[in-house]
Computed example of a mutant assay.
Amino acid sequence: MSTPASGTTHQIESRHPGWPARPGALRVPAGVVALRPVRLRDAGEWSRLRLRDRVYLERWEPTAPGAWDERNSITAWLPQWSSLRRLGRQGLCLPFAITVDGVFAGQITLGNVIRASLRSAWVGYWVSSELAGKGVATAAVAMAVDHAFGEAGLHRVEATVRPENGASLRVLAKAGFREEGLFLRYLDVAGAWRDHLCFAVTAEEVEDGLCARLVRSGRAEHA
């Protein structure tokens, strides 16, 4: 890690450990999966994937104002990126782009970061439909959680998933999350209040890390 150029930078890094960051990579059937901070120049590929995969993504994501095409246009990325960048600098989230062989393939965010005596966050993610079932989301979740419990200094990460979302349930199971319970009418998704299952994992449960667990199971290799 480079030496901070000023006292201000050192204070920011000390106050918000683990950000910015580029966690290590894993090789899965789809290619080499890596995480990096989201960039302004991700706009084109972000918009292309989101518009193409509307049917694949929209049914699982929280309801938001405006039409899908508007919310996922190239111009819509600027305010989203700016907001994520600001929250990252404030220590409130860790917003990563997921790449496969260096190409933008989705996003994963550790959000609502709370420190003090709780030290928790939630994890949310999406990946290109072309990469579904090829280990990308599982690897990204494992890397993000290992980073949360390592450099970011957190203790608990949770995820909420609709019971009907079998693909995401499998991702969390393979990554090592355990089910904690059912949240009734938890989020407005696709225009209605939907039940969500809550999953979580704590630092004590991961031993040498979720990435190491994936490697031992044969689902990934260190890249």
Rank of each mutant, 00 (worst) to 15 (best):
A173D: 14
G218I: 13
G31C: 09
N72L: 05
K174T: 15
C93Q: 15
Y186W: 12
L210A: 05
C211V: 12
C211K: 10
R54I: 10
A167G: 08
Q90W: 09
W19C: 08
R36H: 10
I74F: 01
I108E: 09
A132T: 15
V141P: 07
A64L: 10
L49E: 07
A200H: 04
T202P: 01
L78P: 03
F183T: 03
D42Q: 06
A175R: 02
V206F: 05
F183W: 11
A192G: 12
C211N: 00
A148C: 06
V127P: 01
T9L: 15
L35Y: 06
V215F: 10
T75D: 15
S168H: 04
D208A: 11
I114D: 10
E70T: 13
A105K: 02
R194S: 12
G66L: 10
S217F: 07
V206Y: 02
T138P: 08
L26S: 09
P62L: 11
S117Y: 05
G66I: 11
Q11C: 01
V161I: 15
E205H: 09
W77P: 06
I74L: 05
Y56G: 02
L214S: 05
S82L: 13
G166A: 14
A30T: 11
W19D: 03
Q107V: 15
A43W: 06
H155E: 13
